[in-house]
Nucleic acid binder design. Structure first.
Lengths: 363, 363
DNA sequence: CGCAATTCGTAGAGCGATCTACAAGCCCTC
DNA sequence: GAGGGCTTGTAGATCGCTCTACGAATTGCG
């Protein structure tokens, strides 16, 4: 009575239709050695006629699944699509397909998402989550070709690829300094979510910030989001906004704000908009140069670390590993400052009603 | 000499370790009938000790892969992550995992991405691409549980879920009308990319726009992006901007712009910003209410169709189908207008330099 | 206490591909 | 024309799991 779920066509069907053995069809599929032009033609005709598609799970059991897996820590951060885009263009004319496993919103779900990919027997994994213990990754890398994005710490069993976060943070700080800012604050994740080990981009940005500030003789200051920030539906933008709001209300002079990534920067800009401050009174520099930063209505200064390029490189490294490279590689991509309207030379804050910059009674 | 790729733990190893048969372990894994508490405990202990993880591809060969696949047409459109978020929360405490296959940037790569999922033997598919022929989907739906998002046309072999695009378009048009606009233009995709069949959200929005305009006695006008819009790296935002720029340069009175989705609306806002027009001179209403629309610096009016909720519903429908439901369901979600700063009562355009609205010499 | 019903566990086929052997046919070359 | 080396194709084991069928042990009940 119910609609009959039709059984799909298998390699057996193709072999029968073409009048050859399963092995022969398999060879054609894999473009393996030992097929005559005549047989290839016959088999390909049968494949086309029967509309045969090899099942990846069956292939994975003995050979490869021709699938690469990408793990991304958050589906909300617009930086990751850039990486995916790069990866897809690089894979366009390869036999490999790409699937994405997004990590759940809860704390530390990176390993879980990576395991999802490993369980699916992908031929290689690109992962971005930073909050994954190194030993765990070493173990994984021994079993599956693996490229980690954002790890500064090289490994023996997998490749790493990251932006130069030290340099990037320095670019941001110096930019604000050169504009004239002397109070430069770093907006970053909750302390419990960022270790300053060289394993996380955010940790490295903190270190870069500290160093740059020290070189300029300035005192570092932090605004941090609450620990459960990423569990919020909007990626925690509301929480950042509150934190920055609090900071800005307490401050009275102009401040430069270096946000550890664009999502945080957007939250900061919200707070600034709410208080009606000018870019001079509160300047913002973000990180990642996501698409929206360049929009004229946002015009947000940001550090570009060419996500698309990272995607391309990640795939290239992974394919090399799959092809057999055994020694591990560590690539670093140079960041670039994109100065836009959200950062400007410092201006004093003036009393709301007055329009004359008269002497300020405070300080 | 090279690092030994270690063989992974199989069900056989667990069985041996626990002193039971493979079948017994399998039963525990699947929570199937016929396991004593004692055996379950022993097996689970072994699983934990050996850190065993069943391979999805092997499971898929006879049973299910416990994986649901999401196909999304563009990794750039920020509406889709909302759907994914909803889906993930709904799946959080189920045995199912979620993987995403993004369609390539080229024209009509939807089917390809969907096939990627089908080849991976996922237990069910949620797909969003509208440019996929109905018969093809009917066929697929007969083989795999399938939920299509954005299809207005119900099907016998799969479930459908969409926003009420007719109503949404009407909301947008009426909003602009009530603000006072009488010239309301629709920014949408290239004609070659939108058929007005009830299969595509964009097509339905066109229809809804036409109807609403007719009811108000207004003349429809279109601004369309070039056909290859989505192949551009930025999702075609630059191309929309150019098209809207051209339109706005030719227009001289105030206009209302109803953009078929927020990405297009962002492009329109870029053009407006470039010409220095006020929200009254060129009002914009987008569609999807993506995160960035609510940002105070963007403050973009948009039609909200609760993407998160859609993700939840899609998963629910899919799980029902997997559980055995045979008759197909068609769900419609009501849209909501989010009025923000980008739309305002019409204002005349004033000559650039002069600040008095004097008579215009031209025309 | 004997027989059926129920519970618990195992054996073994099968899913759809890959891949290692190996056999058959062919072409040279001496 | 015998022997060696290619080329082309096949047989059959194998991957890791699920699931049906069935046997053994336990329980229920008149």
């Amino acid at each position: 009575m119910t609609i009959q779920a039709k059984r799909s066509v298998t390699i057996e069907d193709v072999a029968r239709h073409a009048g050859v053995s399963r092995a022969a069809v398999s060879k054609v599929l894999r473009d393996a050695y030992g097929v005559s032009a005549a047989m290839r033609a016959r088999v390909e005709a049968s494949i086309a006629e029967l509309d045969y598609r090899p099942k990846a799970s069956a292939r994975a059991m003995r050979g490869s699944s021709y699938t690469l897996g990408f793990e991304i820590p958050s589906i909300h951060n617009h930086f990751f699509p850039k990486i995916i885009t790069g990866a897809m263009t690089e894979l366009a004319h390869s036999p490999y397909q790409l699937i994405i496993a997004p990590a759940g919103p809860d704390h530390d779900q990176g390993p879980q998402a990576i395991e999802v990919l490993a369980d699916r027997q992908v031929d290689g994994i690109v992962a971005i989550s930073s909050r994954v213990p190194q030993p765990w990754l070493e173990e994984l890398g021994r079993a599956t070709p693996l490229v980690m994005i954002g790890r500064h710490q090289p490994s023996v069993s997998y490749d790493t690829l990251c932006g130069d976060d030290l340099a990037g943070a320095a670019l941001a700080v110096r930019h604000l300094y050169e504009l004239g800012h002397r109070r430069i604050v770093h907006v970053t994740l909750a302390e419990s979510r960022v270790d300053t080990s060289p394993d996380t981009p955010h940790g490295m940005r903190v270190v870069g910030y500290e160093r740059a500030m020290a070189e300029l003789g300035l005192t570092p200051e932090y605004v941090r989001t609450s620990p459960d920030q990423s569990s919020a539906a909007d990626g925690g933008q509301e929480l950042v906004k509150q934190a920055v709001l609090e900071f800005l209300r307490a401050a009275d002079g102009p401040v430069g704000i270096f946000a550890a990534h664009d999502e945080l920067a957007l939250g900061a800009l919200e707070a600034i908009a709410e208080l009606g401050l000018t870019p001079g009174q509160a300047s913002v520099v973000g990180y990642d140069d996501t698409d929206i930063a360049a929009h004229p209505k946002m015009s947000m200064s940001s550090i570009n670390q060419s996500g698309t390029q990272m995607g391309v490189i990640a795939v290239r490294l992974l394919l090399e590993r799959i092809a057999g490279r055994a020694d591990s590689v560590h690539e670093v991509v140079a960041p670039k400052l994109m100065a836009r309207g959200s950062s400007a030379p410092p201006e004093p804050r003036v009393p709301k009603a007055a329009d004359v910059p008269s002497a300020d009674p405070t300080e």
